Simulated assay, not measured.
Amino acid sequence: MGILDLMLRWPVLRQIARGDVKALGETAMTERSRTLEPRTARADRVVKSVCPYCAVGCGQDIYVKDERIIDIEGDPDSPISRGRLCPKGSATFQLVTGTHRVQHVLYRRPGGTEWERLPLEQAMDMVAERVKRTRDETWEDTDVNGFSVQRTLGLAHLGGATLDNEENYLLKKLFTALGIVQVENQARI
């Protein structure tokens, strides 16, 4: 390979030699850039989802390969966001795959002075057990007038503004099935 051939491998010199001053054509390509493809091209499947950050409900396409998320992008079929995501929505991939993601909870036992780390699964089991115990201990078949109420007043739920309509629907169904009557949502939008 001569010196001229070597020099023409540099994109800037190729641009000058071929008169491609804006570098919009073949002169801007390298062997690496010729073989590039989107991360999404090798996905096994695409799962439709909704961004978890606010109540707008922007659509997301979740690209999955070997049961692992490889990319998250805006869903162009979404009538709400039409393929667009805000900076927080665009960062959802890091939210679900980042090494900084918390895999445990901090728990301080009643009367304790120190925090201890518990696995997330154990903490969820503890919450479920406490919900069941509270429901069982505060269950009312009838009210003071003898009317059938089938409820508990020992539990309540306050939802957040990041919940979309579908999530709120499912939460309402769950808590109604548990006999919980105090179900509210702190909605901003």
Rank of each mutant, 00 (worst) to 15 (best):
G146F: 09
K132Y: 07
V96N: 10
Y107I: 11
A128E: 11
E114D: 15
L106T: 08
A123Y: 03
T92G: 01
T134G: 12
L95P: 04
V102Y: 09
W139V: 07
R109L: 07
T134H: 12
L106Q: 06
E114L: 06
D143P: 13
C86S: 02
G98E: 03
A91W: 02
T92S: 05
P87L: 05
D125R: 12
E114M: 08
T142W: 11
E121G: 08
R130F: 13
P119V: 09
A128R: 06
V131D: 07
G89Q: 02
V149H: 06
K132W: 01
R84L: 01
D136S: 09
M124D: 03
T138K: 14
R135Q: 15
E114Q: 12
T92A: 07
T134I: 15
S148K: 13
T113M: 04
T113R: 10
E137L: 15
Y107Q: 09
C86G: 03
L106E: 06
G83L: 03
D136T: 15
A128K: 14
E121I: 06
G89R: 01
S81M: 07
L85F: 01
E114R: 12
R135S: 14
A123F: 05
C86N: 02
T99F: 00
V127C: 07
Q122R: 11
F93H: 14
P87K: 00
E140K: 15
E137R: 15
D141L: 11
R130A: 15
R82G: 05
R109T: 10
H104N: 14
T134Y: 12
A123S: 09
G83Q: 03
Y107P: 11
V144Y: 03
E116Y: 03
R101E: 02
E116Q: 09
T113P: 04
W139T: 09
P87N: 05
V127H: 02
S148N: 12
H100P: 02
W115A: 13
S81Q: 00
V96E: 08
V144M: 14
G111H: 02
N145E: 13
W139C: 04
P110L: 05
T134K: 15
T138R: 13
R84V: 04
T97D: 00
D141Q: 14
R135Y: 10
V127P: 00
R117G: 10
R84W: 13
T92D: 01
H100R: 07
W139H: 10
T113G: 05
Q122G: 06
V105F: 11
Y107R: 07
Q103V: 14
R101K: 06
T134W: 12
V149N: 09
T113S: 03
S148R: 14
S90D: 06
T134P: 11
V149M: 09
R109S: 13
